[in-house]
Simulated scan of single mutants.
Amino acid sequence: MKIILATKNKGKIKDFEKLTDKMDIEVLSILDNIDFPDVVEDGKTFEENSAKKALEIAKYTGIITVSDDSGLCVDALNGEPGIYSARYSGEDGNDEKNIEKLLKNLSDVEKNDRKAHFVSVVSIAFPDGTVKSFRGETQGEILFEKEGNNGFGYDPVFYSYDLEKSFGVATIEEKKSVSHRGRAFEKLKKEVLEKL
């Protein structure tokens, strides 16, 4: 069975391939030169953006599609950067600039008030219009400066309560064992993929 993974992120593609290992699923992505439209993520929540992306591509291609929308939510910033995590420092921003802006916005915030969590909502859509979404979270807090260079995005400034270290110094396997995306994907696997 073929499933499209609606992402350009090679890390997410590898994660999903590992997750579906030993299952009768062929994972297709943009790396396989499949033509699918760019979906405007104009939802107000991770759920809305994730479901919209999966549904539009499933209808366009006629193939079951999985997508994820994820981000970092910081309590002291009322949940920011949230759904705008990837473009927090502007459309031309990057990981470095996003981290810089986040640390600047938290510069007056004490350690006890720097709680944060990563969210991932993974959706699976079928060409008939059926969509199911699964949410995963991982808890932690924002450090005062970067620790390590592993991972991507905000990982170097996110201290994981599960691992008792920054995602920036965690190994890929460690991060995967507690990650928001891993938790959402596991729910998807148990609730849907293993029953297909």
Score class of each variant (00 low, 15 high):
L31Y: 14
K101R: 15
K190W: 00
R183I: 01
S67L: 02
L77N: 13
K44T: 09
G62Q: 05
T61A: 11
T20I: 13
K176S: 15
D108P: 00
L31T: 13
L103T: 03
G140S: 02
N150F: 10
V66Y: 03
N149W: 00
R181F: 01
E17V: 15
K115Y: 04
I30A: 15
E47S: 11
N33R: 15
D155Y: 01
K18F: 07
V40C: 00
K52D: 13
G136K: 08
G71F: 12
S29H: 11
H117M: 01
E100W: 02
R181C: 02
V192A: 02
E191F: 02
A125H: 15
N98F: 07
C73T: 02
I34D: 06
G79H: 04
G168C: 05
Y88R: 05
L193C: 05
L19D: 09
K111W: 03
H117R: 12
N78I: 02
S133P: 10
I3F: 12
I172M: 06
K104D: 10
V66G: 02
G182I: 05
K14R: 14
K12T: 00
D162K: 11
K22H: 08
T45P: 05
G129V: 14
I64W: 10
I13V: 15
N78M: 08
V39M: 13
V40H: 08
V27N: 14
A6Y: 05
R114W: 09
N150L: 03
I172V: 13
E17F: 00
K132M: 10
L196R: 03
P156C: 01
Y84S: 11
E41K: 07
G136Y: 04
D92C: 03
D24G: 14
V178T: 14
K176M: 12
L19P: 06
E41Y: 11
G93H: 13
F134P: 08
R135Q: 11
E41Q: 12
N49E: 14
N105W: 06
D113S: 12
T65I: 06
L77H: 11
V169L: 03
F126R: 09
I83K: 02
G136S: 05
E137L: 09
L77S: 11
T138E: 09
R87D: 10
I124Q: 04
I25G: 06
A76W: 05
K115Q: 08
D95L: 04
A51Y: 02
L163P: 14
F16Y: 12
D15A: 11
T130Y: 04
K111Y: 09
R135N: 05
L72I: 06
G136W: 06
N33K: 15
E100G: 03
S179E: 09
G79W: 03
K53C: 04
D24H: 13
D128R: 07
L28E: 09
E26L: 10
K8A: 14
S120K: 06
G140Y: 08
D108H: 11
E96N: 12
E173A: 15
G168L: 06
G140K: 07
